[in-house]
Every structure is written in structure tokens, then in C-alpha cells.
Design a binder for these strands. Structure first.
Lengths: 339, 339
DNA sequence: TTGTACGCGTTATCAT
DNA sequence: ATGATAACGCGTACAA
């Protein structure tokens, strides 16, 4: 591999001039610049990223912290990661994966102290997340995808669950529905302080209450069978339900199956609206699911951009971005049928 | 951040001794080792990864090359990436994402020459993949997930499509089926030389022919609607079909829906077997899909392990690993009903 | 067993 | 506008 030294010799200049010709930090005569670039081309020179990082104290690497156990958002996750990686590359950064289980948060500390990453992106943030304190202490720039209970001073990009739930209700209520049940993620995720579960649940309760409608909500494990069971129980307890909001892909499919088995037609008898889900997953359903798609791509993009701004110090305000899910009306919601 | 120098001073030894105490390359007296570790703890010392890389000429970084446009294997992809990242970490390596479109293969060259990665993992390999030549020239260790047409001297881990298709047929034929159709990925993916499409197609044709059964195969775009259309066309052309092998998740769901709409019951009238698909996706189907699950986790693990061995030079033989998909019998396959 | 000193390939601070 | 040269933090021959 050719080094800067080789280039300098071939071009008849000093290494520093080569460096400056490359970075543009200091003016260089067009002629010498040309000679240098010619030499680079001839040698097939590419600057050594590691050496550059050591000298400049900047690696241009962003670490993505994600727990091994995924709480059901597998669909959106890939979309998010891809988007984050692409954005990073556009901005001249690399995205590095740090799959760290909930039980080994301590490892995070070590990784950070290795100073391999200029900044950290935190996925699957919980209301009270120990990783945040860690990052705070370590002085490493970081951005949350999701947010803690008190995220006042922190950069974050998250789904706007309040608006999402409100829009979901607007859609259903606009169709004449009043008895609306909510099927969320597992109780375990709630207890773990998993943001989506907590915030969507709260939003549902508040918005229903404000409208004077009864709050019927259930937690559900991430499986089709659990979805079936919840539907059975729900209609047993509340036979007058005409619409379902779900936030749990596996359960949604189970629910649809159970409704079919029970002879309830979707959407004639029951409307189903799946929120914070992946469009790719929704497209698998028959009839095709009306959804509110999680903005994985947007979150990845702005999370990375904000983090880079913070790293490079060109940022004034903290990022507090809340993106609602986008309503995509398909075949599982329709006007309520009067009996 | 504390450096090795700080540790050395505090422990009253030279930096080299600290280094040797850390790497164990040279013996160090227990006492001095203890003093050094005490100093490290006191200072919260962690070796600087970049400096270490520059000196040792080894970054402990593995790059994962994946095209932006995913040819439908989104389900398995996340599983694979997660597994790769976890395995890398277990082995003391980092996984870095390089999302590079098919149209910008040249970029790959630059990235490699930056010498940020010790080795490269190549995803979504095609029969004739330009990236392979690039990597070969650049002398960078690399392992393919998938394989080119002639992968004789290359390390690869891939799905064993031949065995997978044979097992699929054994299952269906064992149930009495003879008129079996195959619904594959898009024609575009075939033309692009996408490995799974090519190899599974060939395997289907060969195994059916060997058994004296008619070869009925279709390409299908990655969408539910395309799956529906193919089913309609298939039964129009071959009304006697009793079983379907699919390798296209979106199309599989569309096919199931169309079969239902046409009044064909699964599995009573038609058995459906989805191959090389993700169990998580399969679980969404109703009735639950019998599948042959893609070994994403295994491929990620052995791909990374093999690559690391090659990087560290402790490998003798080249990796030629072919893992068949595992049959998971659920509710969409059953004995053929005699009319 | 331990210390000294050089090298890794750049960036950045001095000069000139 | 350009050239020396000292960092950057660590690995590792070589010497002691």
C-alpha cells in the first residue's frame, strides 16, 4: 500500500503538503496540487483511515447500541439500521454494530473507553435506561432512538406516540367507531419500561378518556397465539367492540385469524388498525392491513445526522424529534356497520 | 483519558512493560503485573483501539458488504446480521456496515484501501459478482455469504439449496403429492444471477425430472399481488396441482390469500411449503406455514468465524459450508386428498 | 525480567 | 505557499 510518504516523494513535495492538498486545510498551488494528485493516481493512494484517526483524534465511526433481545420491532429494525448505515456513509461516517445484551451493560463502558467510536446511537431505549448515565459520564456524544422518561437535555429521535394514537383514533372514530380496544406489547415490556408500550398505552388512555369513550386495553405477548387469546378474551368481556388498534405485529396476525375463526369479518364486523408496524409486514396480511407505519427510515436518518452534528460541534440546539406514524389506509378499516 | 504512559508512571515501570502485561506476549513478574493492573484500575485505563490498530496493523474490524436493494430476504437478513455482529463481538471483533448499492461497486475499492477493516463479509452474492474480483485483487481476506458460480478457491457459507429442495420434495412426495409447482423469486433476480433464485430453480428442475415428475415453475415479483396472480395463472394452466413450494415470502402470503379466495382450502386441497423463509414471518400466516427456515444465524456465525481464522492466518482449509434449511412442519402441508 | 527507542501513517505546529 | 518535525498511543525488536 502506498503511503503519504510515497506520494510526497513521487510528487517532489513534503508529506505535509500532501496532507494539506488532501484536506484543503491550507492553500496549495494548483500546480503542486496537480502533481500530487497525479502521484496519488499513479500509486493508487488512499489515505490510511487508522493513521488519520490517531492523528486527528476522530475516527468517523458511529456505534449502534442494540440489545440482543428484540422486543418485537424486528420489522422496523432492519429498515432503521439500513437507513442509519446509509446516512452515515453519505456523511462520511461508518456505522458499527454493538449488540449488547441488557445483562452486560458494563461492556458498553469498555467499548466506549476504547475510543473507537466518535459517538453512539442508542436503540430500544427504556424510560430509565442505565446506558444513558454511562454515556453521559463518559462524555461521548450520543443520540437516543426513543427516549427516557426525562430526556430534557438529551438528543433523541422517537416515534410520536401521542399523535400516532390520536390520528389512529381520529381515523376510527371518523368511521363511526366508539368501542375501540387497544392490543399492545407484552406486560413484560411495560414492566421493563419499554418506551413504545408505555407511551402508546398512556396516549390511548388519555385520548379515549378525553373523548368520553371507555378505555379497553390489553397487553399481549409477541406471538400469534397470544393475539388469538386476547381477541377471545376481549370479545368475551366486551362483545360490543367494533374496532381494534394493535401495536404488536405477531399478535395482529393472530388476532385477524381468531376474528376469522369466530366468524367476525374484517372490516365489516371489526376494523383493525395496526400501529407502529412495518409496511412490509402489513402487506402480508389478507385483507391487507390498514396501518400506521413506523418511521424507521426517518429516525435512522435524523438520528445519525444529529449525532454527527454534535460530534463535529456544529450543533446549537438539542435534537428533540418526534415523528408520528403515517396512516396508510388499506382494507381492514371501514365505517362501522349499524346493527 | 488515561494512556499507557500514565499507567506506566503510576506503576513505576516503562510503557513497554505495561504493554506486555496487557498482551502477555512476554512474561511479566506477578508483582509488577499486579502493580500495573492496580494502576490501570485506579486510572480506569482502557487501551486506545486506534493506536493499537496503527501499531499492530490490525483493526479487529470486519466489514459487512450489503447491497441497498434487498432482494426479498429481509426477514432472514436481520437474523443474519445480528448473528454476525454477536459472533464478531464474542471473538473480539467489531462488525461495520457498508451499505453499497450495485451501481457503486467502485466505492468498495476505496473503502477497502482505507484499511479500516481486516476482512470483509459479502452478502447477497451473485453468480458473477464484481465485488469478488475487487476483493481478490486487494488481497483482503473475505468470506462470501452465498457463492459465485465458480467459488472453488473462495471461502463461503451458503444455503444448501439442493438438499433443501430435495428435502422439500421428499416431504411433499411422502405425503402423496406429485403435481408440485414452484414459485420462486422474480425473473429480475434470476437475470441478475441472484444465487438463491438460480440454484433453487435448478435444484427443483433436476429433482423433479429425476423422479419423473413434471416441472412447473414460475418466477414471481416480491409482492402479495404478484403471488396472487401467479396462483391464478398456475391453476389455469395446471388444474391438477396439489402442492406448492414457494421461495418468496410476500408472494407466499398472496398465494395463500388467492387460494382462499378461489375456494381452495389449505392444506386439504393444496399443500403449501415455504422454503428459505424466516420463521418469524412464517408464524404470521394462518394457517401456520410449514416452512424450511433459512439458517441465517448459522451462516452469520460460521461466516464470521471463518473470516477471522483467515485474518489471523490460523486456517488451513477454505470454508465451503452449505447448510440446508430445516423443515418445520406446521399446518399448511398434509397428505394429498384422493378425489 | 525489564527498559530504550523506533515505527505505524497522519495531522498539526512550528518555521521559512 | 511550502517544509521539517513533533505529536497521536501503542507494539515490538533490541539491548541490558
Amino acid at each position: 500500500m502506498a503511503t503519504m510518504n510515497d506520494v510526497a516523494k513521487l510528487a517532489g513535495v513534503s508529506v505535509s503538503t500532501v496532507s494539506y492538498a488532501l484536506t484543503g486545510v491550507r492553500p496549495v498551488t494548483p500546480e503542486t496540487r496537480a502533481r500530487i494528485h497525479a502521484a496519488m493516481d499513479e500509486l493508487g493512494y488512499q489515505p490510511n483511515a487508522i493513521a488519520r484517526s490517531l492523528a486527528s483524534r476522530r475516527t468517523h465511526i458511529i456505534a449502534l447500541l442494540f440489545p440482543g433481545i428484540e422486543l418485537g420491532l424486528s420489522g422496523t429494525a432492519l429498515e432503521f439500521v439500513t437507513s442509519a448505515a446509509e446516512t452515515a456513509r453519505e456523511e462520511g461516517y461508518h456505522l458499527m454494530l454493538w449488540p449488547i445484551g441488557d445483562d452486560e451493560v458494563g461492556e458498553t463502558r469498555n467499548l466506549i473507553h476504547q475510543q473507537l467510536a466518535d459517538g453512539v446511537l442508542v436503540m430500544e431505549v427504556r424510560l430509565d435506561d442505565p446506558r444513558v448515565d454511562l454515556l453521559r459520564e463518559s462524555q461521548t456524544p450520543f443520540t437516543l432512538i426513543g427516549r427516557t422518561a426525562d430526556a430534557a437535555g438529551l438528543d433523541y429521535a422517537d416515534i410520536d406516540f401521542d399523535t400516532t394514537v390520536r390520528d389512529a383514533l381520529d381515523h376510527l372514530i371518523g368511521l363511526g367507531h366508539e368501542r375501540i380496544a387497544f392490543v399492545s406489547h407484552s406486560k413484560a415490556s411495560l414492566d421493563a419500561g419499554y418506551g413504545p408500550t408505555v407511551r402508546a398505552g398512556e396516549a390511548f388512555e388519555r385520548h379515549m378518556t378525553e373523548r368520553g369513550l371507555p378505555v379497553v386495553a390489553r397487553h399481549c405477548d409477541e406471538s400469534a397465539d397470544a393475539g388469538r387469546a386476547v381477541v377471545s378474551e376481549l370479545w368475551h368481556a366486551h362483545p360490543d367492540i367494533t374496532a381494534l388498534i394493535t401495536m404488536n405485529d405477531a399478535a395482529t396476525f393472530g388476532a385477524m385469524a381468531q376474528l376469522a375463526d369466530d366468524g367476525r369479518q374484517v372490516p365489516r364486523d371489526v376494523s383493525v388498525l395496526s400501529i407502529a408496524s412495518s409496511p412490509r409486514v402489513a402487506a402480508l396480511s389478507h385483507p391487507r392491513l390498514t396501518t400506521m407505519a413506523a418511521p424507521g427510515t426517518e429516525l435512522g436518518r435524523s438520528g445519525v445526522r444529529s449525532l454527527i452534528e454534535r460530534i463535529e460541534g456544529s450543533q446549537s440546539a438539542t435534537l428533540h424529534e418526534l415523528v408520528p406514524c403515517r396512516l396508510d389506509i388499506q382494507a381492514t378499516t371501514s365505517p362501522r356497520t349499524k346493527e
